[in-house]
Design a protein around this nucleic acid. Structure first.
Lengths: 340, 340
DNA sequence: CTGAAAGCGCTTACAG
DNA sequence: CTGAAAGCGCTTACAG
């Protein structure tokens, strides 16, 4: 017959309960359960059995207080309204949850000040790890991150900078590839239309620009940049303006699929033939792009794979393991459909 | 000249530091800062000044350990891929963050078992509050919630059940209103097309059914139910099937806008005139519905208002305040555009 | 490989 | 209205 376990106020078994049941000291239970340091295999199994029997689950608050490190991972993303980041997030959670980490989501709204403020708040909770979008943090943000010593992984971009851990792909190359595709299709006046104008959008702009310049086709009137948030409605407006004001334009490369989808809808409304009169291309392959009329040519970006890889890299860093490849480029795929 | 504050290992000032600086006991600092119980106003301001000066921020882990309650609020939603819940979430965070609570998001994927598992995990962290979607929890989930004693608010539906706190609207009434609108437009064979088939979708089905039956127009062949997740592609397929197999149908009421958007795109592809030959209606007024061709008639649902109100209600419950109205109905709005 | 001691930074009763 | 004591449930050095 086993002794009835002592229970704390909340009714949950404690480390001490397990220790008594297993006939060892609490610290041994702690070590056995965490798999830290060498513990006699026989004791380990005795402890595990006792923990199992008592339904023991470590108290995250106590653990955080004693170790000065919580079981939270903070993930900073620009927006939840962009399906891109939802995919990223789901992949991150899928890796982190089974490993015992809780994901705290911070939405920066594409604002570096808000990002810094969010980071500051999250740091108070001593997160075990950090995932942040992009590499373009404010001075203060970088300083906070460095000072905190919390392991961090950047997502969506790549970097060769030493000491920086990141998983992403080359936004520049992806945009260049799409631009080359349009030129290969015989298009000459390829406009670039962008909204939001966050760092990754500007990298795409640069990729487009370089290919256009190399082809001797670049022209400032082909750049349509709008700092407003990306949306179907804005894409429609931009498209209407472009074909209205620059009838010679024979292709529009939008920096994001929602803009391109809006453009396709506007083209139907305005009876502008796509791709006959003007080709339309997007970026990211968001939901619905394959359903458009015509289906949208776009760039498929590996955000789920990025989320998984970043989470696994972070997991390694959090347990102090070495990371063989600190800069992972997951590439992209040109998805040629009927709109170009 | 002020004494240099003692600092803990992490470099952060502690409650004791503030107490020394203010010349009071730690417990008085704790009470003064939390505004709990009566503390001499003069001491309060002295404490606040000291805290300010030392840049004191309470340690969430210590607080959670001592009080057996964390500063987390867990929010359980079915999916992040439905823009509806993203809007809800953003509103919730907007209320909770300034109040000092962190939001932990749990995605159930419309699965009651997964919901129960998620709740179980979150409960280990002793959340201060809980927001859950709908009222249709599994037995075990209900038991866990009741036993935990954690204040909870349900969202998206309404309930008259005593002891249940909820903020939402009548899914049944909203669907009934849309159906009546279609009948008022002279439509007679109004199909109802739904995916996912979660509880709220089934309530909409019931609303449609009741109006159709009351009008003597109900017919089982008008019900198109598909348990697969809702998507543009599925909406297109369903629309194609309906007009193909039931040419007499003169309206299709989709349970969600993404399905209806897909239907509109399919209609364009199939050259089915909307609304002339068949009217199309949706639900939720998601992004893009106003950009469709023709713009989609739908029901605008107040998810942001629901998120804010639910968060405020939870805030009241967490501080032990009485909630005057435990069952808040925020209504809905029929948005008649050109597709009906 | 294992343990006794101390401590993480708060809050909860219990006194006065 | 204020405080001294105890404790929340763990982990971190420090010994052996």
């Amino acid at each position: 017959m086993t002794t009835a376990p002592r229970r704390r106020a909340t009714g949950r078994a404690t480390l001490t309960d397990v220790a008594q049941a297993a006939g060892v000291s609490p610290i041994t239970v702690s070590r056995a359960l965490r798999g830290e340091r060498a513990v006699d295999p026989e004791l380990v199994s005795r402890v595990q059995a006792a923990a199992q029997r008592l339904g023991y689950v470590p108290d995250p608050a106590a653990r955080a207080l004693a170790s000065q490190r919580s079981s939270h991972v903070a993930v900073l993303i620009p927006a939840l309204s962009n399906a891109l980041f939802v995919d990223l997030l789901e992949a991150v959670q899928r890796e982190l949850r089974p490993a015992g980490y809780q994901t705290l989501i911070g939405v920066t709204h594409y604002d570096r000040q808000e990002e810094e403020q969010l980071l500051r708040e999250h740091l108070l909770h001593r997160p075990a790890g950090l995932i942040v979008t992009g590499l373009d943090q404010a001075e203060g943000t970088r300083a906070l991150m460095a000072r905190s010593g919390v392991p961090c992984v950047h997502v969506m971009e790549t970097s060769a900078e030493p000491g920086v851990f990141c998983v992403g792909f080359s936004q520049f190359d992806a945009a260049a590839a799409m631009t080359r595709h349009l030129l290969a299709r015989g298009r000459r006046r390829v406009a670039f239309a962008a909204a939001q104008l966050d760092p990754r959008t500007l990298q795409r702009l640069a990729g487009w620009r370089q290919v256009m310049q190399a082809a001797g086709l670049h022209d400032a009137t082909l750049e349509w940049l709008n700092p407003a948030p990306s949306s179907l409605a804005l894409g429609g407006q931009m498209f209407e303006q472009i074909v209205g004001q620059r009838p010679a334009v024979d292709a529009v490369f939008f920096c994001n699929d929602d803009l391109a989808q809006g453009a396709l809808l506007a083209a139907a409304r305005l009876k502008v033939a796509v791709p006959r009169r003007v080709a339309v291309a997007g970026f990211n392959d968001l939901t619905g792009s394959d359903q458009m009329l015509p289906p949208l040519t776009t760039v498929r970006t590996p955000r789920s794979a990025i989320g998984s890889a970043a989470a696994r890299m972070l997991l390694a860093r959090m347990r102090g393991a070495a990371v063989a490849q600190p800069n992972v480029d997951l590439g992209f795929e040109l998805l040629v459909r009927d709109s170009t």
